[in-house]
């Protein structure tokens, strides 16, 4: 009797006993479709992560061209003030549950542009809630994959039917830079239409 990877307890290799929520979370965890969205340098590393050597497809991560089919938004690269509201719009179009990985120093905190730039937004978490921050300028594909693994831990705890925790789940090594998490501005449009718009 071998234990296959899966939620709950296994009686033999065909029967698992588990809660529905855990089963759904298990499914979500292994099929994180991400939005094909790249703004700057990190975007090249994101593409290379999808390339033949790192091949994130094997983690069930398939790029989707439209936010309506995506579970995960990887904010790869610098976000300027001009771009930020567009990112928010994209995020609002994603169906619940949705996750955001902030990839690279620019998306985390403005990175090398935080001090002297007039046009760069210091951290995309001012516009969308970020689950996992991946440091680096740009992060290597391995670092991105590590961030995704940290996110999967978070996805595993997501409850579709049960009570959801409102506490932010902070993953060690992927916390928000400068301690305090920024407050989200009030949305311009009603947020979270469940991808029906």
């Amino acid at each position: 009797m071998t234990r296959r990877e899966g939620p709950g307890d296994a009686f033999d290799d065909r029967i698992h006993l588990t809660a529905v929520d855990e089963f759904l979370a298990w499914g979500k965890e292994h099929s994180l479709f991400y939005l094909l969205f790249a703004t700057a340098c990190c975007g090249i590393e994101l593409m290379q992560a999808g390339g033949p050597r790192y091949d994130v497809d094997r983690l069930g991560m398939i790029p989707r061209a439209t936010p309506r089919q995506a579970d995960l938004m990887i904010v790869a690269g610098t976000i300027t003030h001009k771009m930020a509201s567009r990112v928010r719009t994209l995020w609002e179009q994603m169906g619940e549950p949705r996750w955001v990985v902030s990839m690279g120093s620019c998306a985390n905190s403005g990175g090398p542009f935080s001090k002297w730039s007039y046009s760069v937004l210091n951290g995309i978490d001012k516009y969308v809630p970020v689950d996992v921050y991946v440091p680096g300028c740009p992060p290597r594909p391995e670092a991105l994959i590590d961030g995704v693994m940290a996110l999967r831990e978070r996805v595993r705890r997501y409850r579709t039917l049960g009570e959801r925790s409102t506490e932010p789940h902070v993953v060690a090594g992927h916390e928000a830079p400068f301690g305090a998490r920024c407050q989200l501005p009030p949305p311009d449009a009603p947020a979270g239409d469940g991808g029906r718009a």
Binding site: S114, Y118, G123, K126, P177, F178, A180, R181
Partner: peptide, 29 residues
């Protein structure tokens, strides 16, 4: 016009502050 030498950096854009909470620099524009 940002590349003028007497340009003042904006404190915020559409109500979103430019700097992060708790972020400060020893010298700044």
């Amino acid at each position: 016009h940002p590349l003028r030498k007497d340009y003042l950096y904006p404190a915020d854009y559409h109500g979103v502050p430019h700097l992060r909470d708790g972020q400060s620099f020893s010298t700044s524009p």
